[in-house]
């Protein structure tokens, strides 16, 4: 078990380094500092402005190895884009954004709160609702309840997420006037009013795939022999479903759930940007529209980091939840 954990962790670290390298290739190889600088200062800017901008943002270093500063000064060797890229990502010192010149760290701190206030309720409600409805559908399998749930799943999965947002805003916000159409206010008393609509729409968007997956898992478990044993010793429907089926099904469901945790920070990109919630998703969209490569790089890195951490967490919790794995 310990050996497994160490190995898993080591592989995680290796993957993080892989992601860093991938980012370097993408942002310094496929596109390069010259392009970035030209986009930032504009095509017609004076050459001095262009050079100055590159200097300010640290884009003026050589690519791999710095040989300009003399062979004997060891530190200078590493004064390159590659080393700087790795150093920054590893030390979480993300520097300044390419436009606006703000420290990226501050914007991340400011964005984390609003993001979480949207995605946390979305995550918890989605999980409870998803499991509940899937359990119901699985229990009443092949009845009209099950069929209705499946139909709703297929239909909602076939609608573009963008449409849900636009349609939801139109119906609930504009026509019924239940909630404000967009905006954000961190004040505790009114925050719910701003969040209700995006959370509602987010729930509908996530409904289909989750419920279908959970239902399949439940049905698979319900066909197992131990369920028959439980019934044969006199356990009732509720006990069979909750104490036996749910407990076993939670293991595969866990995988799906923990994998979703990184999306607490990035997943609601569309919702945030559309409803004007100043979270990390909005930051990403703004960076995209403003050609802010430093910001994008940081977001992709953090997203991947969260995802890798989530995967490790999944594997560990998987091992802990299943005695067959835990005790081997």
């Amino acid at each position: 078990m310990v050996v497994y954990l160490v190995r898993r962790l080591a592989y995680g670290v290796l993957t993080v380094f892989g992601v860093m390298l991938l980012l370097f290739v993408l942002f310094f190889g496929v596109t390069n500092p010259d392009d970035i600088a030209r986009k930032a200062v504009g095509e017609r800017a004076m050459p001095e402005v262009y050079v100055q901008w590159k200097k300010n943002h640290g884009y003026d270093r050589p690519m791999f190895l710095n040989t300009e500063h003399g062979v004997f000064d060891g530190r200078r060797y590493s004064d390159t884009l590659l080393f700087e890229h790795f150093r920054r990502l590893l030390s979480f010192d993300f520097g300044r954004s390419d436009n606006g010149d703000e420290p990226i760290a501050r914007r991340l701190r400011e964005g984390a709160g609003p993001s979480l206030s949207l995605t946390l309720p979305l995550f918890v409600l989605g999980l409870v609702l998803g499991i509940g409805i899937a359990l119901l559908a699985a229990f009443f399998r092949e009845t009209y309840i099950d069929r209705a749930v499946l139909l709703v799943c297929v239909v909602t999965m076939s609608v573009a997420g963008l449409l849900f947002i636009i349609g939801g805003q139109f119906l609930v916000g504009l026509l019924l006037k239940w909630f404000p159409v967009s905006g954000f206010d961190p004040n505790a008393t009114v925050i719910a009013r701003f969040l209700a609509l995006p959370v509602l729409i987010g729930l509908v968007m996530g409904f289909g795939p989750d419920v279908r997956l959970y239902r399949t898992v439940f049905l698979e478990e319900m066909n197992r022999d131990y369920v028959r044993t439980a019934r044969a010793k006199g356990a009732g429907d509720a006990r069979v479903m909750l104490a036996h089926v749910l407990r076993n099904a939670l293991i595969p469901i866990l995988t799906n759930v923990v994998m979703a945790i990184p999306f607490l920070f990035t997943g609601a990109l569309l919702l945030e940007s559309f409803f004007g919630i100043p979270g990390l998703g909005s930051l990403t969209v703004d960076a995209l529209n403003g050609n802010d490569f430093a910001m994008l790089r940081t977001m992709v890195y953090l997203g991947a980091l969260a995802f890798i951490a989530g995967q490790i967490l999944t594997d560990v919790s998987y091992a802990l939840a299943d005695p067959r794995v835990r005790l081997s």
Binding site: R224, A230, A232, H244, R247, N248, I251, R324
Partner: peptide
Amino acid sequence: IGMIFQEPMTSLNPVT
């Protein structure tokens, strides 16, 4: 009425 099944391998709940 008590009942015993053919497959003892799968007839017990694996996580309990």
